[in-house]
Simulated scan of single mutants.
Amino acid sequence: MPTTGYLKRLTRRLTEDLGDADAVEIAEESRATGAQRAAECCRGDEVTMHGELRSVETCSRTAKAGVKAEFFDGSDTVVLKWLGRNRIPGIEPGRKMTVRGRLAEHDGTKIIYNPYYELQSPDDE
């Protein structure tokens, strides 16, 4: 019966955690672009990842001035850090993008310093 399958999918969509659903969607989109998964990358790897910015903050009053963003690709979180910048146009929470750079690790957190990035057009989202 096609109705049973539809009801099952509808029930699952209504009851599943929104974060999990979002992670699956982002992971599928990342896989479609051919990007690497953050969970499978190690320190020192040259990586290309596709995902979404979850948060962005400016650290201008410390010795470590710059823009810091939390990037999520559906598998893991990576911190993106642009040194010496107060603001970067287009770098805002919810924005999807592709980033390239060398993966580092600091206190157990994956981080890319001064990554190359390509913003996805808001029309494509």
Rank of each mutant, 00 (worst) to 15 (best):
residue 103 L to N: 08
residue 99 V to Y: 00
residue 31 R to L: 06
residue 18 L to S: 08
residue 102 R to K: 14
residue 92 E to A: 15
residue 80 L to I: 13
residue 96 K to R: 14
residue 39 A to E: 00
residue 89 P to W: 07
residue 17 D to G: 00
residue 117 Y to E: 05
residue 108 G to C: 07
residue 53 L to M: 12
residue 105 E to T: 09
residue 100 R to K: 08
residue 8 K to D: 15
residue 95 R to K: 13
residue 75 S to I: 12
residue 66 G to R: 14
residue 53 L to S: 00
residue 39 A to Y: 01
residue 112 I to H: 06
residue 29 E to Q: 14
residue 82 W to K: 15
residue 52 E to G: 07
residue 73 D to N: 04
residue 120 Q to L: 08
residue 58 T to P: 15
residue 28 E to T: 02
residue 23 A to T: 00
residue 27 A to T: 02
residue 32 A to H: 08
residue 27 A to N: 11
residue 125 E to H: 06
residue 18 L to R: 07
residue 4 T to A: 10
residue 67 V to W: 13
residue 95 R to N: 10
residue 57 E to M: 09
residue 59 C to R: 09
residue 78 V to L: 11
residue 87 R to L: 10
residue 23 A to C: 02
residue 22 D to E: 13
residue 22 D to L: 07
residue 42 C to I: 10
residue 54 R to L: 05
residue 15 T to H: 06
residue 3 T to M: 07
residue 111 I to F: 00
residue 31 R to I: 04
residue 15 T to A: 09
residue 45 D to Y: 01
residue 43 R to T: 14
residue 6 Y to Q: 05
residue 93 P to V: 08
residue 8 K to P: 03
residue 100 R to G: 12
residue 32 A to G: 00
residue 83 L to T: 08
residue 4 T to V: 06
residue 58 T to Y: 08
residue 31 R to T: 12
residue 122 P to K: 09
residue 58 T to V: 07
residue 104 A to I: 04
residue 57 E to A: 04
residue 89 P to M: 03
residue 9 R to Q: 11
residue 20 D to R: 01
residue 53 L to R: 03
residue 5 G to F: 01
residue 51 G to Q: 02
residue 14 L to V: 02
residue 57 E to C: 12
residue 11 T to I: 05
residue 92 E to K: 13
residue 124 D to P: 08
residue 108 G to D: 02
residue 110 K to S: 12
residue 93 P to F: 15
residue 40 E to Q: 02
residue 39 A to D: 03
residue 58 T to R: 07
residue 23 A to N: 05
residue 6 Y to P: 00
residue 81 K to I: 11
residue 53 L to K: 01
residue 40 E to M: 02
residue 95 R to L: 06
residue 94 G to D: 05
residue 2 P to H: 09
residue 45 D to K: 04
residue 59 C to T: 02
residue 47 V to T: 01
residue 86 N to Y: 15
residue 26 I to E: 05
residue 30 S to A: 10
residue 67 V to S: 12
residue 72 F to W: 11
residue 108 G to I: 10
residue 114 N to R: 09
residue 35 A to F: 02
residue 56 V to D: 01
residue 125 E to M: 14
residue 114 N to Y: 06
residue 74 G to A: 13
residue 115 P to H: 07
residue 87 R to Q: 09
residue 75 S to M: 13
residue 8 K to H: 04
residue 4 T to N: 04
residue 25 E to G: 08
residue 7 L to D: 04
residue 8 K to Q: 06
residue 13 R to I: 00
residue 93 P to D: 09
residue 82 W to R: 15
residue 62 T to C: 04
residue 21 A to P: 05
residue 77 T to H: 08
residue 3 T to H: 15
residue 113 Y to M: 11
residue 36 Q to Y: 01
residue 117 Y to W: 13
residue 60 S to L: 05
residue 53 L to P: 04
residue 99 V to D: 03
residue 8 K to T: 13
residue 112 I to D: 05
residue 103 L to C: 06
residue 4 T to F: 01
residue 106 H to R: 14
residue 32 A to Y: 10
residue 125 E to F: 10
residue 5 G to A: 09
